[in-house]
């Protein structure tokens, strides 16, 4: 076998699969992936055509359109804004849940984690379907708002940014909680205890010990949440009420065409490339910021 070194077939110094030949297993997947993304970039640089998929005329028109045409840049900005906002809310809601489960839940800890994990595994579409039911006019949320006197008369939250935001937060919440549970679990109690014994009040212990040490977990969860939500498709499709678009939804609408007009693949490709760059830059940027400073100690 090629994995065996020439020095002698019984030498155990090279384990199974040490040979570069085994890297070939990834080739079919990576080749398809490279062609997908490569062709996407190529198409985005050509003029759209009414009759064919695209014409062979090189142009930057598609990108210019994405950044100057109101419908496209609004959708992009809304995607960035809503996913940033949803990331903040998700962290704020998830942190007390994760902290309580790790530190104060006692015997119920396993049961709570089981509940979070169950919601995590529920099919994405079903999670958003639930909010379709809840946010409808005369739905549970509407009734609750009226009961609390926050709204007068029936309100339909579907088709509003608030409705989309709720969907985005809900969809990423279980992952964030699980990510934070792992982070809080890693904080050594001795360190918290030492700080407390040295006279630090509980809130100071949390602020100076627990919170910084769980920062890597917050970052991991935030990365995932932002990347997932900036490209959201299902949430705006179901909770956007047909009026509020986000970049992911727009890519699909532009690619299949609206009404009688055919799809504009070059424009959809330009939108995809921009969305991909935003999502990748954000991920890499966050990783760099947090891995370069004091948080490295905690990881």
């Amino acid at each position: 076998m090629s994995a065996v070194p020439a020095r002698g077939s019984r030498r155990p110094d090279l384990p199974f699969a040490a040979s570069p030949a085994f890297a070939l297993a990834s080739l079919p997947v990576l080749a398809f992936f490279a062609v997908f993304i490569g062709w996407l970039a190529v198409i985005s640089l050509f003029k759209p055509s009414v009759f064919a998929v695209y014409t062979a005329d090189f142009t930057l028109e598609n990108y210019i359109k994405v950044f100057t045409s109101r419908i496209y840049y609004t959708a992009l900005l809304r995607s960035i804004w809503l996913s940033a906002l949803s990331t903040v809310f998700t962290v704020l809601i998830a942190y007390p849940i994760a902290y309580h489960i790790c530190r104060w839940a006692g015997r119920l800890k396993g049961a709570y984690i089981a509940i979070v994990a169950s919601v995590f595994l529920v099919t994405f579409v079903i999670k958003i379907y639930a909010w379709q039911i809840l946010l409808e006019r005369a739905g549970l949320v509407d009734r609750l708002l009226q009961l609390l006197g926050l709204t007068q008369g029936p309100t339909r939250l579907i088709g509003t940014e608030t409705g989309i935001l709720i969907g985005l937060v809900y969809a990423s919440l279980p992952y964030m909680i699980l990510s934070l549970i792992t982070a809080v679990e890693k904080v050594p109690r001795d360190v918290e205890h030492a700080a407390a014994v040295s006279g630090a009040p509980p809130l100071t212990v949390f602020r100076t010990v627990t919170l910084p040490l769980t920062m890597p977990g917050i970052v991991t969860g935030a990365l995932f949440t932002f990347a997932l939500n900036v490209a959201a498709f299902i949430v705006p499709a179901l909770l956007g009420g047909g009026t509020i678009t986000m970049a992911g939804l727009l890519i699909q609408r532009v690619s299949v065409g609206v009404g009688t007009a055919g799809g504009n693949w070059p424009l959809a490709a330009a939108l995809s490339v921009v969305l991909l760059v935003i999502s990748a830059l954000f991920s890499l940027g966050l990783v760099r910021v947090f891995s370069s400073r004091r948080w490295r100690l905690a990881a």
Partner: peptide, 8 residues
């Protein structure tokens, strides 16, 4: 993002 892979 899945939406980009889907369109690509």
């Amino acid at each position: 993002p899945n939406v980009v892979i889907g369109f690509a």
